Simulated assay, not measured.
Amino acid sequence: MIIEFEGEIFRWDARDDSAWFFTAVPPELSEDIREIPRPYRGFGSVRVRARVGGSEWSTSIFPSSQSGSYVLPLKKAVRDAEGLVDGGPVLVRLDVLDG
């Protein structure tokens, strides 16, 4: 399953003074992903191949306890390469590998 969406980048401050950056998969697409039969993985994660601009990487998306949508972590190398900033837009393509 391949999905594309535009999201907003948001920051989550970890307890150890480091920050993580994410974007949320829209609720309707998160529901489609949730319906794919697959074995349970830690934290309810789903393996994906992500693409933002010219950057592509393997990672996992995780269900957010606050929104119920999946969230995609955006690592620093990708943010730097693609000029992504907190609060800015991001166009994402996900190839869902689990399922």
Rank of each mutant, 00 (worst) to 15 (best):
I2R: 12
I3M: 12
F5H: 08
E8Y: 05
F10G: 03
R11P: 05
D13Q: 13
R15D: 15
D17H: 12
D17C: 00
D17G: 06
A19K: 11
A19P: 04
A19T: 05
F21M: 05
F22G: 11
T23A: 10
P26D: 12
P27W: 08
P27I: 09
L29H: 00
L29G: 01
P37V: 09
G42T: 14
R47P: 12
V48H: 00
V48I: 14
A50S: 08
S55M: 08
E56Q: 11
E56F: 00
W57F: 14
T59Y: 00
S60R: 07
I61A: 09
F62D: 04
F62M: 06
S64R: 05
S64V: 01
S65H: 08
S67T: 15
S67Q: 07
G68W: 12
S69Q: 13
S69W: 02
L72V: 13
L74E: 05
K75T: 05
V78M: 07
R79Y: 05
D80K: 14
D80A: 14
A81Y: 08
E82A: 12
V85S: 14
D86C: 13
D86Y: 09
D86W: 02
G87E: 03
G87P: 01
G88I: 06
L91S: 13
V92R: 04
V96M: 05
V96I: 15
V96A: 03
L97E: 10
G99N: 02
